[in-house]
Design a binder for these strands. Structure first.
Length: 502
RNA sequence: CGCGGGGUGGAGCAGCCUGGUAGCUCGUCAGGCUCAUAACCUGAAGGCCGUACGUUCAAAUCGUACCCCCGCAACCA
């Protein structure tokens, strides 16, 4: 079987930010996809990391009386610790202040400069002294910025405009490149206007915490030029050709807020470097809190850690993956979380495991019974089970995680129905082998469902599979072994009881 | 007319491309079962598919117009 390559990235998060549900979502999504692809036998590489340069870091460090690097080193664990707790299994973690990255950024700057795609020019723009950055005319009109004045500054520019037509054609020729599709349209719309060149430098006088431009020591490079390169510097561009050739191009998972930077800045940079464009740029939506946006001022920020502590990692992963569909925004409410947890995990999945194992303990001495000879009823379940793997694989390869999960849950629901119609608790009184056949079939379907949910809920599924005595089983129908003793176990997903309001 | 997405039973969504019994999850109500985490199963109520025209034997599905919501409109991580 020919393996596919699957190189998946998250954005590198700004180290100064407090990790929130959005960061967690993208990272879990990347983790789930990479675990699925790994299980499918693909050659997987999963990268995430931190963006550590820029003004905010510099200022925050100054405030604390630390060097910027010490400040970053101090903050980085907020992310890495969270990823550990969320069960994130990444292959590499890049920080833009690492020498391996800076070296490549400098060499790329030099290469692009030598290739004639970087030039210097005087830039005149509106500058907010209070904010210490250039602002757009729109922003100036908004009146949100104080001490605005026009200043002139010499800077380096990247010839983004040069690649506009090529980019338009590329996007038109590759329908699956920017996803979901309405984002692709958005970018094509954006590209109908002429692109201007991208300012990629900052004078050190204004900003010193960055990567020095190799051909002009008075400047550091603009954060995006620095940050985007992480996607290739981490996998060996300019340092390990074999590794780079093995994984590039990759799949970029991003929030919809940074679609332009990825689909325009990054792609034109790659054109200039004469490298293939990413396989996919996937812009997912945002988590809204009830009716409003999540924001610190509203005090409705959901802290992933709180949720994990209350309900466990896997429940959080399951919720985030099943509730957000494709590129749309999703709503996060505690009520929603509890509803989905209870109905899917506690009532359907967890309770079904309890039903079958309880019956096996009661009527079959706690030993997984023989599969027996399948009747039409068993054949229905088995054929659904056999079809499920390929179906889920197709959906995962198409980034439809929520639909994939739903397909698995459909099998679980079908098994609950099957139990009801076959009633093994009644059968046991008259025809014990028939009852065993039903329980074997139900348990096997449950095992298969668990295997397919492994990427989403690694811990819980490992528990289930070890209870069933087949920790390393796969997607073939019938891998469940008869004659194996089932241990007793506490409820897998205890129901969350909510006090009813009067 | 800047560009784009969307308006489907109480909630969230699918269906629209390739017209022809309006589907799924949750919620509500009734019943069943009693192996199970008060869970599971069955059934029911509830929709003029944003509005108005048009094309067609037939439109949620195609066309036109309008109304409403949302995203994008760049150097901002």
């Amino acid at each position: 079987m020919i393996k596919s390559r699957f190189y998946v990235t998250t954005p590198i998060y700004y180290v100064n930010d407090a990790p929130h549900i959005g960061h967690a979502y993208t990272t879990i999504l990347a983790d789930v996809l990479s675990r699925f692809h790994r299980a499918l036998g693909d050659d997987v590489f999963f990268l995430t990391g931190l963006d550590e340069h820029g003004q905010k870091v510099q200022q925050a460090a100054e405030k604390r009386g630390l060097s910027p690097q010490a400040h970053c080193d101090d903050l980085a664990p907020r992310f890495t610790d969270l990823w550990k707790k969320l069960g994130i299994f990444n292959d590499d973690f890049i920080r833009t202040t690492q020498e391996r990255h800076k070296r490549i950024v400098r060499s790329i700057l030099q290469k692009v400069y030598d290739g004639g795609d970087i030039y210097q020019k005087e830039y005149e723009g509106l500058y907010s002294v209070a904010e210490e950055r250039f602002i757009t005319e729109k922003e100036a009109e908004s009146g949100q910025f104080r001490e605005v004045k026009t200043i002139k500054e010499k800077n380096y520019f990247f010839k983004m405009s040069k690649y506009q037509d090529r980019l338009i054609k590329y996007i038109e020729d590759n329908p699956g490149f920017i996803r979901p599709e309405h984002r692709r349209n958005e970018m094509l719309g954006f590209l109908r206007q002429p692109l201007t060149d991208l300012c990629i430098s900052r004078p050190k006088a204004r900003l010193s915490w960055g990567i020095e431009i190799p051909f002009d020591p008075d400047y550091v490079t603009y954060v995006w030029f620095d940050a985007l390169i992480n996607y290739i510097s981490a996998i060996g561009y300019g340092s390990d050709d074999v590794k780079f050739g093995r994984f590039w191009p990759g799949v970029h998972l991003i929030g919809k807020d940074i679609l332009t930077t990825h689909s325009i800045y990054w792609t034109t940079m790659l054109f200039s470097l004469d490298l293939p464009l990413p396989e996919v740029i996937f812009a997912h939506g945002w988590w809204l809190m009830g009716e409003s946006k999540m924001s610190k001022s509203l005090g409705n920020v959901v802290r992933p850690l709180d949720l994990i502590e209350q309900h466990g990692v896997d429940a959080v992963r399951y919720y985030l993956m099943s509730e957000m569909n494709l590129g749309a925004d999703a709503n996060f409410t505690p009520e929603n979380f509890i509803k989905r947890y209870n109905s899917d995990l506690a009532n359907d999945f967890g309770n079904l495991l309890n039903r079958v194992s309880g019956l096996i303990a009661k009527n079959h001495g706690g030993i997984i019974p023989d599969a027996g000879v399948a009747t039409l009823a068993e054949e229905d379940v088995a054929s659904a089970g056999r079809a499920l793997g390929p179906k889920v694989e197709g959906l995962i390869r198409d980034y439809k995680v929520d639909e994939a999960i739903n397909e698995v849950m459909n099998l679980v629901r079908q098994v609950n129905k099957y139990m009801e119609t076959q009633a093994p608790w009644k059968l046991a009184k008259t025809d014990l082998p028939a009852a065993g056949r039903v329980l074997y079939t139900a348990t096997e379907a449950l095992r298969l469902s668990a295997v397919l949910l492994k990427a989403v809920m690694p811990e819980k599924v490992a528990t289930v599979l070890s209870i069933l005595g087949v920790p390393d089983s796969g997607l073939t129908w019938g891998e469940l072994k008869s004659g194996v003793a089932l241990p007793s176990f506490p409820a897998l997903f205890p129901r969350i009881e909510v006090e009813k309001k009067a």
